[in-house]
Design a protein around this nucleic acid. Structure first.
Lengths: 197, 197
DNA sequence: GTCTATAGAATGATAGAC
DNA sequence: GTCTATCATTCTATAGAC
């Protein structure tokens, strides 16, 4: 087996890429998902716009990296939840998962738009980054299955419910809790409709 | 009482405004909510771009007119539903209302985005047009009340459910029926959770 | 890898003639 | 009310020096 030497240049390149993605997310939070130019991102990381093309082929390539990064952030939240409540009953875990998921959506509307609403005009996630999204959904489906709602239709209903609650909160009561208060009742409603196993 | 003479000039002006709004909707359907310029709308109605400013003060003013027009379209759908099933049982009416509402959302994603997701960067509906939106929501709340789910929290949960189903259908299965098939089960779930009166 | 310079194109909006 | 002409920006992306 070949003893691979660390490629310090590649590491540096990847670190800069991540720095750019983080700066873009910060701008998206402040000004909206489409409210910034490559110039702005460049300035935020101490560069000029053309230098970004060393790291990303286009603005959509940057959105793609943000897409993957955003789903990875959600995966981390799930990990933290598992670490906090490792042996909770399935339905309790689902309840807490719903709360975590809702909070994740609402705390950053721009991120919610990119990850769940696909609202950047010409952007479609590439296969690689979309795989991260699928990974997260499978993780959620596992929890649902443990709670007795693992059928595809049940999973789809669950995602619609959570997306709808978050979407309404963001669009119609930003900064408030009008739909947040409905998360627990919604989970109860959902669970009551599923046959217990 | 003053015998008001018809103001033919005002009528003509209003008709042209509506023509422009319709052309903008057509472009939004084809290219997305933000995928067209005032030039394009002007060309579609046989004008040059500056002439539009006789009818709208800005592009956002046009979005505002579209917003009001879109909600009025939804109101028409509700009227048609009432005309078709005037004496249906409340819960049956709710079921059919959900189907109509879902279809309305999915058949024009750009309209769904403007009316329900507020996804035009700098645009906020004015008070007058927002009043139309409230009117439609009250109409829905009335039907919900008749079905035994008229409390504000129940209405909010209902809107979240429908918005979530439509949003997921549009984002993750455009042209398909993966979430459409869940509308009826979702309504059943919702109704089962409400105490019958 | 980072820069300057700039291409190339699009856009919302205004001025003023007719 | 409609037009021509144009302003004033803004933005992504590329070329090529260093």
């Amino acid at each position: 087996m070949t003893e691979a030497r660390r490629d310090r240049r590649a590491e540096r390149h990847a670190a800069t890429r991540q720095e750019i993605v983080a700066a873009a997310w910060a701008l998206a939070r402040e000004r909206g998902l489409g409210g910034w130019a490559l110039r702005d991102v460049a300035e935020a990381v101490g560069m000029r716009a053309p230098s970004l093309y060393v790291y990303f082929d286009s603005k959509n390539a940057l959105y793609d990296a943000m897409f993957g990064d955003g789903w990875r952030q959600l995966l981390e939240r799930y990990d933290e939840l598992d670490a906090t409540a490792p042996v909770a009953a399935p339905r309790d875990l689902l309840r807490r998962g719903a709360a975590v998921h809702f909070e994740f959506c609402v705390e950053d509307p721009a991120r919610f738009q990119l990850l769940f609403l696909r609202s950047v005009p010409g952007f479609e996630p590439t296969g690689e980054t979309y795989a991260v999204a699928r990974q997260v959904l499978e993780r959620g489906a596992t929890v649902l299955a443990a709670a007795g709602a693992g059928e595809p239709a049940q999973v789809d209903l669950w995602t619609a419910l959570l997306t709808g609650l978050a979407s309404q909160q963001i669009s119609n009561d930003p900064g408030g809790d009008r739909w947040q208060r409905l998360v627990d009742p919604a989970v109860d409603m959902f669970l009551a409709a599923q046959p217990r196993r």
